[in-house]
Design a binder for these strands. Structure first.
Lengths: 185, 185
DNA sequence: GTCTATAAACGGATAGAC
DNA sequence: GTCTATCCGTTTATAGAC
C-alpha cells in the first residue's frame, strides 16, 4: 500500500482517538487495530507517542483553521459566528468526541513543551478570529461583546470549549448553540 | 497509623492527581509514593481504580459544594459571583490543576456510568446555583444574563470550566476573572 | 515498508504472611 | 491494616528478517 496512505490513516485515526479518549487513554495497539497495521509499523512513521501527538495536533490545527478561514469574510458578523458554531458542532461527531486541543489542554501535564506550544497557537488563532468577529458584530449592532473584544473572545472561546465537554457529558448538542446565543444581541 | 488518616490521605492525594494528570495519567504506584504506603494497601481501601475515582469525585463534590453553599446568601448577587470566582481560582492551586469534574468530563469515555452520573450531578448543582445568582443579579441590575438565566448559567459554567483549562495552558490567572467580568453590568 | 519476535518497564489486581 | 511476593496482561519501543 502507498506509504502516504498508511501515514495519513494513522494520523487520521490518531486524531479520533485523541478526541475520544485523550493522550493517556489510547495505545499504539488501539491505533494499530483501527488502521490494520502492526504497532511496529506505527513506530516507523512516528518513533515515539509524543511525535505522534505533535503531528496529530498540527494536522488537526491546520484542518480546523482552514475551515475557519474558509468562512466568507464578507458575511455579517453574526452569520460568521453561526458558521463557526456549526464547525464546533461537527467536532462532536457521533457524540463521543471533544476538540483535540481542548483534550490536550486537559492532558497538558503529560505532554512535552512542543505540544503545549502547538495547543497554545491553536487557542490564540481561534481567539484572534473571534475577537475580530466580535468587534465587527458590535459595529454592526448584531453581537454584544460587552467590553474589550479580546477579553470577550477569550471568554467566548473558553465557553465553546467548555460546552463541548458538557455536550458530551450530557449527550446533547443544545448547549453549544446556547453559547452563540449568549453573545447575540 | 489510624485507619481514617491513611484513607483520607489517599483520597486527598487521589484528588490532586486527578486534577493534575487525569484518570489515565496516574497509577496506584504514583499514589502510593505520595502517601507512603504500598499499592496493595490502596487496594485494601479502594479495590479498583474505578472505586477510587468514584469516591474521589464524591469527596471533591461534597467539599466544593459546601464552600459554594457557604457563600452568604444575603449578599448582593455580584458579590456572590465574586466569591464563586475566587473558589474557582483556588482550584488552580500551584498552577498545574483544573477542576476535578472538568478533568473527568474530558476522561468520561474511560469511566463507568456511576462516575458519569456523579460528574453530571456536580455540573447540575453548579449550574443551578449560578442560575439563581444570575436571576438575582438581573433583578438587582448588577449582572447581565442576556436571556433565560438557566441557559445563561450553563454557558457561564462552561466558560468557567474552559477558562481553567486555558489558565493552566497559558500559565495565567487573568482569564478566570475575565469570565466573571463578561456577565457584569 | 511491514512483519515477527522480543525486550523491559509498568498497569491493576490478588494471595497470604505478619 | 500493611506488607512482600507475585500474577499476568499491557505499554512503548527496538532488532532484524523479509
Amino acid at each position: 500500500m502507498d506509504k502516504n496512505t498508511v501515514r495519513e490513516a494513522l494520523l487520521d485515526h490518531a486524531q479520533t482517538l485523541l478526541m475520544t479518549r485523550g493522550y493517556n487513554g489510547f495505545s499504539y495497539r488501539d491505533l494499530s487495530e483501527l488502521v490494520g497495521v502492526k504497532t511496529s509499523s506505527i513506530h516507523y512513521y512516528f518513533p515515539t507517542k509524543e511525535d505522534l501527538a505533535l503531528e496529530a495536533v498540527n494536522a488537526y490545527s491546520a484542518d480546523v483553521m482552514s475551515s475557519i478561514y474558509a468562512i466568507d469574510s464578507s458575511a455579517p458578523a453574526d452569520k460568521k459566528l453561526d458558521r463557526y458554531t456549526k464547525l464546533f458542532a461537527r467536532i462532536i461527531g457521533g457524540g463521543d468526541q471533544i476538540c483535540l486541543c481542548g483534550m490536550l489542554a486537559a492532558d497538558i501535564e503529560s505532554l512535552p513543551e512542543k505540544v503545549r506550544h502547538a495547543v497554545q497557537s491553536f487557542y490564540k488563532a481561534n481567539e484572534n478570529w473571534l475577537a475580530k468577529v466580535l468587534a465587527e458584530g458590535e459595529a454592526q449592532d448584531t453581537l454584544d461583546a460587552g467590553g474589550k473584544p479580546e477579553a470577550a473572545a477569550r471568554t467566548l472561546y473558553a465557553a465553546f470549549q467548555g460546552s463541548l465537554l458538557a455536550c458530551r457529558l450530557f449527550q446533547t448538542r443544545t448547549r453549544l448553540e446556547e453559547v452563540a446565543d449568549a453573545v447575540r444581541r
